[in-house]
Each structure stands twice: as structure tokens, then as C-alpha cells.
Amino acid sequence: MSITFDKVDHLYGKGTSFEKMALKNVSFHIRDGEFVGIIGHTGSGKSTLIQHMNGLLKCTGGNIYYDGKDISDKEYDRKKLRQNVGIVFQYPEHQLFEATVGKDVAFGPNNLGIPGLQAEVRTYEALRSVGIDDSLLDVSPFDLSGGQKRRVAIAGVLAMKPKVLVLDEPAAGLDPVGRRDILDMIAGIRREENITVILVSHSMEDVAEYVDRIMVMNDGELAMDGPVGEVFAHRRELEEMGLSVPQISLLMKDLEDAGIIKDTGIYTMEEAVRVLSKRLLEGSGQSTYNTTP
């Protein structure tokens, strides 16, 4: 499903002293199967933006289209939209409520009216794809660890088999290993299911390695939108918005400025390791620079 936002505005608390323009004139187009990162400082409107994607919030200005169809149309099937666009909210583990992990994950499919056996199959599949062992199926979700709870909550959305998966800060509050695991898992799901994935984060480091395209939100506006390397080239502007580019891209930029490497726009650790080790091997042969004084 392709997503089009056309000059979308959102105003909270209209007519009160809490009035807040949380989205201003946001326009973009996301093609089928893209892997997009949305980054922005706290309060920049990321969560507000994604809640428009499945119709939980209605825009106060502009239009939103899926596959060219306006979702504010009377005839548009919004229930179907909720099914097609799965949103995993910030701290999704706070929404767990059932007595067992299995039942909680089956909540979504049951709401969609999917027959028992099929719902069960989906539950198994979803739990497996988030790496939760079958032995935990009958355990209370409240007895799991933080990271496990989060996986179960994500499985709860996956079990609805969405065509677009939106995740709001899926790695927030986890330790570094947990963060990597969750993000790797999401990338894996995207590869297997071939779905559109939108990853919201305020950490560049997290997003950079995984996504193909970055949208930068700043104070309710879509400030930048483009391929990862292109966005990271605007280091100054990003810093002005309270965002920093990944550490490794700073190092690589310095090395490039010093004339030690020639490659530009490197922002992932793997890429950097590859380039640097190649350079080191070359270096040992020709000794471009001296280590002895």
C-alpha cells in the first residue's frame, strides 16, 4: 500500500489555551515496500504523525491517501485500514492485558473475526517471528522480562498481518544488546514478509543502519526527506534541530577530510569497518603514512 500525505496539519486542543499545532503542512509519499525512518527531537510530532496513518487521529487540514484513495471519504473502510496498517506504540508492553501470552497475541486476530484455528496459527507465527519460544505461550505476559514483553506486544500487531508496519520507538528503554536484537528482528520481518516498515526513533544511530530513507521531523514540520546518506550530509542543520549524526559518520568524515580515505557518506559500522580494513591492508603494503617518528 502506498501512502500519500498531502499538506497534512494537526491541531491539538482547538480553542483552549493548550492549543498546539503538532503537524504543519506535512507532505510525502511512501511507496510499497519501503523501509523508512522517521526521526525528530522530543515533541517534534512523530507520534502524532503516525497516528494519522491508521486513522486514529484525523488531520485538521490536508488529505491522506492510501493507494490513491482518500481515507477521510465516507465510503472508505476504516476498519480495514486499521488491519492493513499495524501500529506498535511507544512502550507497547503497557498494553498487555490478557491472562496468557497466547491469548494476548490472539486479541488482534479475534477482533478481526478470524476463525479460531486460523487465529491460533497466526499467533504461533507471530510469536515465532519475534523470537518468543512456544513454551511461553501459556505464561502470563506480566511475568516476562521487559524485552520479552515488548516482543509479545509487537507480535500482537504482527498477528493481524498488516501490509504496513509502523513502530514508534521500538527500542526505547532497552539495553544496547536488546536494542540491536529488536531492530534486527524488525529488519528480518520486513525481509520475510516484504511489507512497508516505518521506524520512528529519535536516535540516528538506531535508524541509520536499517532504513533506506529518512524523514526528519522538526517542530511539526517535515524538515528533510531523502536517502540516508543524503540526510546525514546535512550535519549542521541536523545539529540545529537537536539531532546528531551517527558517531561513525563523524569519524569517517574526519578521516576523509584528512585525506586518509576517499569514500564519502559512510554512516554504518559495517561499511566503515570494510573501508578501513581495506585501507589498512593497502597501507601496510605502500606505507602511505609513517607510524615511526
Partner: peptide, 28 residues
Amino acid sequence: KAQQARGADFESGNIFRRAKALIPVLVP
């Protein structure tokens, strides 16, 4: 909102259905 995103429906059905629909909200 999180439960609505999982297909929960708080707006339709009779009073008993609606009350039951609140369980996924009240427990968390």
C-alpha cells in the same frame, strides 16, 4: 488507541459488549 490499533471497537454494540470491550483498557 493501542487497543484500537489491534482492532478493538469501543463504539459499537450493546451496553454489555461495550463494557466487555473496556477490559483490555482497564487491566493495563
